[in-house]
Design a protein around this nucleic acid. Structure first.
Lengths: 249, 249
DNA sequence: GAAAACATTTTTGCATGCAATTGTAAACCT
DNA sequence: AGGTTTACAATTGCATGCAAAAATGTTTTC
């Protein structure tokens, strides 16, 4: 009765209900056969990052290593590798011998991240003015008009979708991969903060935001890099203030 | 003569000369007993990062996992964790099933990194103007004068030390931890590029750089954030051009 | 003699094992 | 009873094991 613990090593072709991590892992290729090219580590990393950014784990909550292993169907090794990377991104804290916790961001941290995002967007605007194509500009202009329509119709949800897309397109237009990567990291952090709520109530802030976007488009059209840089940073600062008030409720 | 490779598995209590990773690891606490608090992973990460940034491994060179394990006296697990983090920082490339290589940065990559550093310093300057203390400003001013002395004496090495320190102090003065972290990462990447050589030959560029630094100090004294931001970005752009020419030799 | 096919060694990715540390709760003392 | 101690369980950090993939070397074929 002591040899029952080692009989799971043999390679079984067909097995009824997956229970252990290894067995679940053996089934994963069936569940998602189309994208079985990335390494297990990368997939776990992406999934765990989303899992946290989406807010499935509360701030400061312990990250249950073993539980997530079974949930993702992998062993501890790739999961731990993912945790180290997420720690270096600032999404989780790693306490020596005491596990990983979802990083609890304080108001001061969000202030830092917003400023950082502002700086990155300011840079993006400057670089975009140097290298943006006519087609790329036209695309942003079209998005701007679309967004304006949603503003007039008071469709906050669609307005925000367009808004985010415009900012992302400016970053893309900068044509700087290193910048895009860092922007994505910072934006991911901030995404954990759910704001944008009562912009509708504060109608004057909304109108102001739209005016700022018009100034952004204008500077971009004139390829005025330094100017656009300045406008974008200040725009993000105002967004930060609005977010702060929104979160305070 | 084929069984000699597996006899090192037994755990020995007393052993003459450490040879295997495990044996070396067992001796490490004796070698450095005072700072045995950080996790093995963190230490390996820092050491490996330095090892690469210092240029001990050539661009595009394979990273010999097993060899570094023995060199650092750890097993593959913490080393591989460190490699994943370094990959996320962009220092190494991880090729699926084909190991890690030192990321070979092309001219275009350095251009991106320089622009990114310019954007981060521009942000730092802007934020520093908002929050810098008189003491911090005085420190930077003193460094500036010291640097000017080295310029007059044509001491390129000390000039550059001061120069780097000034830029770092501005970033510190921004008081934004997230920014500092990203700046450190980008600066580390760029440090792999050894430039700054023939600034001495190009005497006009050196003089120009000094003038730019005077403008930086002036804007900082006036707490002119937007202006400083602009100057810093352009200063970095010029630095980039000089570096490009310097590397081209 | 060069290229293709095969066999062998090495390396990689992941799972698991094990000792050490931490968390937890029952037993103990004052 | 309240706080301390001690035994126990869970968790963590790292080392190692193992199968699959790649690199390398050898033979074979034309």
């Amino acid at each position: 009765m002591s040899d029952t613990k080692t009989d799971a090593k043999t390679e079984t072709e067909v097995m009824p209900p997956p229970a252990s991590p290894a067995e679940i892992a053996a089934f994963v290729p069936e569940i998602r056969p189309e994208l079985g090219k990335t390494s297990l580590h990368d997939e776990v990393l992406a999934r765990l990052r989303d899992y946290i950014v989406e807010g499935n784990l509360r701030d400061g909550a312990r990250i249950p290593e073993r539980e997530l292993c079974t949930q993702f169907g992998v062993s501890r090794t790739p999961l731990r590798e993912a945790l180290k990377v997420l720690a270096s991104e600032g999404l989780v804290d790693l306490l020596p011998n005491r596990g990983a916790r979802v990083r609890a961001l304080k108001a001061e941290d969000y202030k830092e991240l917003f400023d950082l995002m502002g700086g990155l967007e300011a840079l993006a605007g400057r670089l975009a003015c140097e290298s943006i194509s006519a087609a790329q500009y036209a695309e942003i202009e079209a998005l701007h008009h679309e967004m304006y329509g949603f503003y007039l119709r008071r469709d906050l949800h669609e307005y925000f979708r367009c808004n985010q897309l415009i900012h992302q397109k400016i970053v893309d237009a900068a044509g700087n991969g290193a910048l895009s990567g860092m922007y994505a990291t910072v934006a991911g952090q901030i995404r954990r903060l759910r704001y944008a709520a009562n912009l509708d109530a504060k109608r004057d802030r909304w109108a102001e935001a739209v005016r700022e976007h018009e100034a952004i488009l204008d500077a971009l059209r004139r390829r005025a890099g330094g100017e656009l840089s300045d406008i974008l940073f200040k725009h993000l600062r105002n967004k930060q203030i609005a977010a702060r008030e929104s979160v305070a409720e």
